[in-house]
C-alpha cells in the first residue's frame, strides 16, 4: 500500500518536474539570448490579462513591432484583473531574466513600486501600457484615455435617447483603473452636461457574460422606463445585449458597448447595439514595444502616447480605419 502511494508520489513529482521544465524552458532560452549579449534586445511585456480578446490584440500589435524592430518579446498576464499578487510574481520573474527594457500594464501601481524601483536602479527602462503605471518611473506610457472615451459614450447615449430619461451602467469592476475611469467618465459627463438624464443604476458583473446578463435583466425589471444601458467592457456589453434580448426589449433600449469582438460587431450590424467605443489595442501593443526600442536606441519618446479611441456603429464599422482596430 505504502509502496504504491510512494510510486504515485514519484510519478506526480516527475510530472511536476516536467511541467516546471516546460514552463521555465521557453523564457529561459529567450533570457539566455539576451544574457549572451546577442544583437537581439529582450523586452518582456507584463499585461493585465491574456485570455481576453483585447489582450490577444495587444499582443498581436506587440509582436508586429517586435518583428519590425527585430527584438524578442514575451507576453504574459494574470487570469483576471484582481490577481495583483500573480502579476507581481510575473514582474519579478521578468526582472530576473535581465531584460533590456520592460513593458508593464499595472493592475495596482503602488503594489509594483518596489520592483519598478529595482528596474530603475538597474537602468532598465520601463514603458507603461494600457492603464499604465501611476508613478514617475516609466519613461513613456501608451494608453487610451478611458475617461474621455467613456465621456464620448455618454454624449452618444444622450443624443440617441433624445437628451432625457433614465440610463444604467453595467461595468466590469469597481477597483481596476479601467473600471473606475469608464464609470467616472460616463457618470461625470451625464451629470455635468445632461441634467434631464438620470443614471438610475450602476452595477458590476466582473466582466462575466452570464452575471452581466442577469444584472441587466434585474435593472430592466426595476426600471421599466429605462432608455439605455452602457456596457463598460466587452464581457459587460455582451451581457447587456443578452439581458436586453431576453427581456424582449431589443430595439427599445439603446445599448452602447466598449471594445469589439464578434458578438458585439454582429449586434451592431443588426442594430441590436447602437454602437461602441473601440480603443486601439493593436496600437497599444505596437507603440509600447516601439517606445521601448526607441528609448534603448537613445531616441526621444513623448511621456504620454495617446493611442486614441473611436466611436463606431453600423455606418462606419466596415470603414478601413475602423475595421483595422476591431478584433473578432
Amino acid at each position: 500500500m505504502s509502496s504504491r502511494s510512494m510510486r504515485v508520489f514519484v510519478a506526480l513529482g516527475a510530472a511536476m518536474a516536467l511541467l516546471v521544465g516546460a514552463c521555465g524552458g521557453q523564457p529561459a532560452t529567450t533570457g539566455g539570448a539576451s544574457a549572451s549579449t546577442s544583437a537581439k534586445l529582450f523586452i518582456p511585456m507584463i499585461s493585465k490579462g491574456f485570455q481576453h480578446q483585447f489582450w490577444q490584440a495587444v499582443r498581436q500589435g506587440a509582436e508586429k513591432a517586435a518583428a519590425q524592430y527585430n527584438v524578442t518579446i514575451t507576453f504574459e498576464g494574470p487570469e483576471n484583473e484582481s490577481q495583483v499578487d500573480k502579476q507581481i510574481e510575473m514582474l519579478q520573474a521578468a526582472i530576473n531574466k535581465k531584460p533590456n527594457a520592460l513593458c508593464f500594464a499595472a493592475l495596482d501601481s503602488k503594489a509594483a513600486i518596489p520592483l519598478l524601483q529595482k528596474l530603475k536602479d538597474q537602468n532598465i527602462p520601463v514603458i507603461g501600457f494600457d492603464s499604465g503605471v501611476d508613478s514617475d518611473i516609466p519613461v513613456a506610457t501608451a494608453a487610451t484615455d478611458n475617461i474621455a472615451a467613456a465621456a464620448a459614450a455618454a454624449d452618444k447615449m444622450a443624443s440617441l435617447i433624445g437628451m432625457s430619461g433614465d440610463v444604467a451602467i453595467v461595468a466590469h469592476d469597481q477597483t481596476s483603473r479601467t473600471g473606475i475611469d469608464r464609470v467616472k467618465g460616463f457618470t461625470d459627463q451625464i451629470k455635468s452636461k445632461y441634467p434631464n438624464i438620470k443614471i438610475v443604476s450602476t452595477q458590476y458583473g466582473g466582466g462575466d457574460q452570464l452575471k452581466s446578463t442577469d444584472i441587466t435583466k434585474a435593472i430592466l425589471q426595476a426600471n421599466p422606463n429605462l432608455k439605455g444601458v452602457f456596457g463598460a467592457n466587452e464581457g459587460s456589453a455582451i451581457g447587456v445585449l443578452n439581458g436586453v434580448k431576453e427581456s424582449g426589449k431589443s430595439g427599445k433600449v439603446v445599448v452602447i458597448g466598449y471594445d469589439s469582438g464578434q458578438q458585439q460587431m454582429d449586434a451592431i450590424r443588426s442594430g441590436e447595439e447602437a454602437g461602441a467605443i473601440t480603443q486601439d489595442p493593436i496600437g497599444i501593443g505596437f507603440k509600447s514595444v516601439e517606445a521601448a526600442w526607441k528609448v534603448l536606441n537613445k531616441q526621444s519618446v513623448p511621456k504620454n502616447i495617446d493611442t486614441g479611441f473611436h466611436w463606431y456603429d453600423k455606418t462606419n464599422i466596415d470603414a478601413p480605419d475602423i475595421a483595422a482596430l476591431l478584433y473578432k
Partner: peptide, 10 residues
C-alpha cells in the same frame, strides 16, 4: 446555449 457562445474564461 444561453450565451449563444462558449466563453472559455468563465
Amino acid at each position: 446555449a444561453r450565451l449563444n457562445s462558449a466563453q472559455p474564461s468563465l
